[in-house]
Amino acid sequence: MGDMVLIPGTVRPDYAGGGILNLISSIQSHFGLKSKHDPLHAPIPFQKKAVLLIVDGLGFEQLERHRQQGDLGAADHFQEVRRLTSVFPSTTMAALTTLHMGAPPAETGWLSGCLWLQELGTIVNLIRNKDEFTRQGVDLGFMRKTRSIYSRLDEARVRSTIIFPEAFEGSFLSNWHHEGSHQQGYAFTPSTIPTLVQNALQHSDYVVIYYPHYDDMCHRYGPESQEARDEARLLNTILGGVMHRLPPHTTLMLTADHGHKTISGNIWLDGHLDLHPHLLRPVSGDKVSRYVDVKPGHEAEVQAYLSRWADVVSSHQLWEEGYFGGDPADLQFLTRTGTLMAHARDDMELNWSYHPEVLQIKGWKGNHGGLSSTEMWVPLGIFNS
């Protein structure tokens, strides 16, 4: 595997010491577990206990902008703020799974939030566990290819707690991602999370907080919107409260699964009928980085057609160059990334209406899944009490 940047001006995911995968390896090492993946190049000065705050959608550039605007003053108390890469694709399903499993997408098989699954013969929305065409639920039990780090910590008698929205309790993802931990749902108010963290640290060695609300504001209104700033101010209250209530000898880390880019252009590929004869099936993957299954011998036509809005590369080359974090743990994973990957340029995204309900969804003003710097770079803030 090389270190080639396949699309000029983009950021390669780093799995060798400078990414979120390596952050989890460092945390495992702190608690005495061995990981098959490298820790961070620069060691974290861990104290006895550790808290990881995962802010969905808070890219490094967004954090710095909010600090400069006075929205996230609590972040000024970090003794250090580093820059890490997300995984590819820079989407919640891929990156959050890495943060809970300590494994890259090449090992988990979670290569997008919307995948063609050969096992089911359809495209599935992995967030909602539904067939994209029928909107019927599907059983994703076969997608559990890896174990959570919490189950391994539990075997080593290291206690962990996950604090996350109570609306997610009992879901397939929560049960799998959080296996081996104590799960604590919260009904959101700014004062709730610091109290829950304080209580959890009385019986746990490692506490993880998942905060999805900022990501929602960025999707709906855009990462530079007033709504995103307002949410950052709420986050500031939570972050400051957690810092204030940390017991001695505790390390607090803040990171994210990905950042965001502003979206102002939408291309509905299902309406481009000249493209359809060249495809095996509708596109899958994320709206910013689409997987395209092409009929044999039609690659050049599809690449030329999509090049109006996207940089198009071979999915095989993505695997060869290590963009997914290594060789596929299961050869079936190769069928999930299509023949080509179309990476939308600038402020564009590529849509497909799998079902009439899709057309009723208001277009997002912020999105992610691609390789731009705003999507790929995420922060690592470190605070020792």
Rank of each mutant, 00 (worst) to 15 (best):
D3V: 09
M4L: 13
V11E: 01
R12Y: 04
I20S: 02
L21Y: 06
S29Q: 15
S29Y: 07
F31C: 12
F31Q: 11
K36S: 15
P39K: 11
H41S: 13
L53F: 15
V55G: 02
V55Y: 04
D56Y: 06
L63C: 03
H66Q: 12
Q68C: 01
G70C: 04
D71G: 05
D76Q: 12
D76G: 08
F88K: 01
T91M: 03
T97L: 07
T98D: 04
H100P: 00
A103F: 02
P105I: 12
A106W: 05
S112N: 10
L115I: 06
L115P: 00
W116H: 13
Q118A: 15
E119V: 11
E132H: 06
E132K: 10
F142Y: 11
F142N: 03
R144D: 09
R157W: 08
V158I: 15
F164L: 14
E166L: 12
F168H: 09
F168L: 15
E169V: 09
S171P: 00
W176P: 00
S181Q: 08
H182F: 10
Q184V: 14
T192M: 11
I193C: 02
T195A: 12
A200F: 04
V208K: 07
Y210A: 09
Y211Q: 08
H213R: 13
Y214K: 09
Y214C: 09
M217I: 04
H219V: 11
R220I: 11
R220C: 02
R220N: 08
Y221N: 06
Q226L: 11
Q226C: 01
Q226H: 08
R233N: 01
N236F: 07
L239G: 01
G241H: 05
G241R: 04
M243L: 06
M243R: 02
P247V: 11
P248A: 15
P248S: 15
D257S: 09
H258G: 02
H260E: 09
K261H: 03
L269F: 07
H272L: 14
H272I: 14
L275F: 10
P282H: 13
S284G: 13
G285S: 06
G285P: 00
D286H: 08
K287Q: 05
K287H: 05
G297M: 10
G297W: 09
H298F: 10
H298N: 12
E299G: 01
A304T: 10
L306Y: 03
S307G: 00
W309A: 03
D311A: 10
S315C: 09
H316S: 14
H316C: 04
W319C: 03
E320C: 03
F324M: 06
F324R: 04
D327I: 06
A329Y: 05
M341S: 05
A342S: 00
A344H: 01
D346G: 00
M348W: 13
E349F: 03
S353C: 13
P356Q: 14
V358D: 15
K362E: 15
G363E: 10
G363P: 00
H368K: 05
H368D: 07
G370L: 08
T374S: 15
P379H: 12
F383S: 04
S385C: 13
